[in-house]
């Protein structure tokens, strides 16, 4: 996957540090980096608002505030796990996305509990965006990725979503490229199954089935 890279996070901090330097410095108590990191993390509530709107969740502002508090604390507590080579913003984005996915599941479970006996509740909260099918597919994909094991998920995130090359991922993971490729292709197979692509050999002329 070609993968377009976003402006480097260091640029957002005045270009002084890479994201890894920013995070490590902040964790070691460097005041300047902590303040820069704090400014960077103000992205969290804005991200949640945008994702929630685009996924058609339309959460109340108070719920978004609570969620932002939760994500903020989660991000801070997991910062020592941030190792690069990915950038900080996508890393934060994924935590936001995961938390929103949990909220979505919780809403679905609540709806299921409250539904009359025998009534079927759609698993996904309906999107109200214009591009509804696209959002639905994205939600399915996000859900499928979250079900992968940690190793496969990381490969998919770094190569499939972050756009790092197989070589970069292999260097970061300190494993042979073939191992990264193997994990990646097997993960693609699993994602296909989770997303509802037909299992086994297709016999319908090869037409793709949209989930």
């Amino acid at each position: 996957m070609s993968g377009s890279r976003r402006p480097h996070a260091g640029e957002a901090s005045g270009g002084q540090w890479t994201d890894l330097e920013l995070v490590r410095g902040a964790l070691q108590g460097d005041l300047q980096r902590r303040q820069a990191l704090g400014t960077r993390l103000l992205l969290i509530p804005r991200l949640l608002r945008v994702i929630s709107r685009r996924r058609g969740m339309n959460l109340a502002e108070s719920d978004l505030e609570d969620l932002a508090q939760d994500v903020f604390i989660t991000v801070w507590s997991k910062l020592d796990q941030f190792e690069g080579p990915e950038e900080l913003d996508p890393w934060v984005y994924r935590i936001c996305q995961y938390q929103l996915l949990n909220v979505r599941r919780k809403l679905w479970r609540t709806a299921q509990r409250m539904a009359p006996n025998g009534a079927e509740v759609l698993e996904e909260v309906p999107s109200q965006d214009a591009d509804e099918s696209s959002d639905h597919r994205l939600t399915l994909l996000e859900s499928a990725i979250s079900q992968l094991n940690a190793e496969s998920r990381e490969i998919i995130q770094l190569h499939g979503l972050e756009g790092l090359t197989f070589q970069e991922v292999a260097r970061h993971k300190q494993v042979p490229i073939s191992t990264v490729k193997s994990l990646y292709y097997r993960a693609l197979e699993r994602l296909g199954r989770s997303m509802g692509l037909p299992q086994g050999e297709w016999g319908n002329g090869g037409s793709k089935q949209t989930p």
Binding site: M1, L138, L141, I156, G160, L161, G163, L188
Partner: peptide, 8 residues
Amino acid sequence: QTELAGAQ
């Protein structure tokens, strides 16, 4: 892969 590119 196409779906991943869309997600990206």
